[in-house]
Design a protein around this nucleic acid. Structure first.
Length: 493
RNA sequence: GGCCCCAUGGUGUAACCGGCUAACACGCGGCCCUCUCAAGGCCGAGAGCGGGGGUUCGAGUCCCCCUGGGGCUACCA
């Protein structure tokens, strides 16, 4: 029998009917930092919730006691907060469907297991791991699918009772119905599974801990999740989950499986490709809004020629149906460009708030940084050279630190002009008295150039090199203004 | 091995339920602006849509096969 089992058609999907309000969740397992892939999944959920006046839930999937740590959980929450992906229900907030940490929901899972046991869709299995392993190998040798053979399914009720009473160790398995399943995935379309591809699977370990595939279903059902938006790696699991929803008698949510994020070599993005954690990007000086904007465009597009969106605009335009099913390569170069765009369009007051602590750390005790005005001038001066917030330190060093000797051949050449001594002499005189503003500088430089008989590049370059050691950098008059008369005269000597 | 997903320039994407010299952005090259670099503006080079068969007057868009990636197949999540 191959009756397809699906409760949602593509057409009836997201926005239309949906009498119940949207409820989505991001369910990371706290086994490490927040990965950009996870962040993007969280973002898609968040955007969908915000765009539909729905509820965004954060749930911690920590049933793997071996690998989960509190530290990782805290890191996850911190990075989520930094990105501004605020949740309506979850850790630190609570909500009507708590607790939101799976390790605290054990009684709920046990009760669900009881339900399945008593309605006949699950049964205890006493087979030992060794037996199972042996059977698996036999099956493989004979080229049969290595599925559970159903030994314990056929135990008599009396025997089950007896062995249970004797305290024999056992797991709980779900009996897989003999029919096919299908789901209409919002990003992938219809996906089908034949019944013979799956054997009776475990939902509760012999130590009494429920298994992931079971917990998600119990939780998603209990938390009344309407749309499950998650990574593609969970797509094959959906087969088991459909069976569990059915066994539990709970409505099946709408699914949307988002593709993976790859590194430049097209393999799954990992540490060896460089920074992969959101926290790392934060520390490297990326702006959260740029990060959000970039991530949103990784696998999603509105369909118009546009790159820059505020998060409110993203929430408004975002739709699950327009997510690209193909995996996407994480392009740091484009992220860098995006960050520059945000840096330059950000109100300066906001920018200097972010930049000030970095400068104060780099120049501890330097009183110049007590002045917001100084930081503002400095930041504006180097703004066009910034890719990240952290670049401000590097750029500031170039103008603030004592000018080194000419750093390269071009610099040496620029200053090795015969008129240069005369130019500097004239310049010292002009700078000693000129009004200390841009008009004053320009007049002074022009006058000194006239005296020494140079103009244009041969006038500006020697000054630049003398003051900063290099031919490249920020606007010269801006540097003069920033450093002040005294410092400039000192460097000119 | 079995099952499932994916496939447009170097990268991210667009091209409505088939109809254009395949569009936009990043990156790249050039020009302009300019004391330089950067930023910004303009112009340009990059794909004939993984390959092969179909269907059709017409296919990147539909169907089949293949190839190549990836995922799942755990008493991991």
């Amino acid at each position: 029998m191959s009756s397809s089992h699906s409760t949602h058609s593509h057409a009836a999907s997201s926005s239309t009917a949906a009498p119940s309000a949207v409820r989505v969740r991001f369910a990371p397992s706290p086994t490490g930092y927040l990965h950009v892939g996870g962040a993007r999944t969280a973002l898609f959920n968040w955007l969908f919730a915000r765009g539909h006046h729905g509820t965004f839930i954060l749930r911690i999937e920590d049933t793997d006691q071996e690998r989960s740590t509190l530290e990782a959980e805290e890191g996850l929450l911190r990075d989520m907060r930094w990105l501004g992906l605020d949740w309506d229900e979850g850790p630190g907030i609570g909500g009507p469907h708590g607790p939101y940490r799976q390790s605290e929901r054990l009684p709920i899972y046990r009760k669900a297991v009881e339900t399945l046991l008593s309605n006949g869709s699950a049964y205890p299995c006493f087979c030992s791991e060794e037996d199972l392993e042996r059977k698996r190998q036999e099956a493989e040798a004979e080229h049969r699918s290595p599925h559970y053979d159903g030994t314990c399914l056929h135990l008599s009720p009396d025997e089950v009772k007896k062995r249970l009473a004797a305290g024999e160790p056992h797991v709980v398995r779900v009996h897989v119905p003999g029919k096919d399943y299908a789901v209409d995935d919002l990003v992938r379309g219809r996906v089908e599974w034949k019944t013979e591809t799956l054997g009776d699977f475990i939902i509760m370990r012999s130590n009494g801990m429920p298994v992931y595939n079971f917990c998600v279903v119990v939780d998603d059902a209990d938390m009344e999740i309407t749309h499950v938006v998650r990574a593609e790696e969970h797509l094959p699991n959906t087969h088991r989950q459909l069976i569990l929803y059915e066994a539990l008698g709970r409505p099946i949510p709408i699914f949307a499986h988002v593709s993976l994020i790859l590194g430049p070599d097209k393999t799954k993005l990992s540490k060896r490709h460089g920074a992969t954690s959101v926290g790392q990007y934060k520390d490297d000086g990326f702006l959260k809004d740029a990060m959000i904007n970039y991530l949103a465009l990784l696998g999603w597009a509105e369909g118009v020629d546009r790159e820059i969106y505020t998060r409110a605009e993203l929430a408004e335009k975002f739709s699950l149906e327009r997510i690209n099913p193909a995996p996407a390569v994480f392009d740091q170069t484009k992220l860098a460009w995006m960050n520059g765009q945000y840096l330059r369009s950000m109100p300066v007051d906001e920018l200097i708030k972010l930049v000030a602590p970095k400068l104060k750390t780099a120049w501890p005790g330097d009183s110049r940084f007590d002045s917001d005005e100084f930081i503002r001038k400095l930041t504006s001066l180097v703004l066009n050279h910034l890719t990240t917030l952290n670049d401000v330190v590097k750029e500031a060093k170039a103008v603030l630190d004592d000018a080194p000797a000419p750093v390269d051949e071009d610099a040496r050449a620029a200053i090795a002009v015969p008129e240069v001594p005369a130019l500097f002499t004239a310049l010292r005189g002009e700078f000693a008295t000129c009004p200390w503003n841009k008009d004053g500088f320009n007049a002074a430089i022009k006058a000194a150039g006239k005296t020494a008989g140079v103009k244009g590049k041969t006038l500006f370059m020697p000054i630049r090199v003398k003051l900063t050691g290099t031919c490249h950098g920020a606007e010269l008059v801006g540097i003069l203004d920033l450093l002040g008369r005294e410092e400039i005269l000192r460097r000119l000597n």
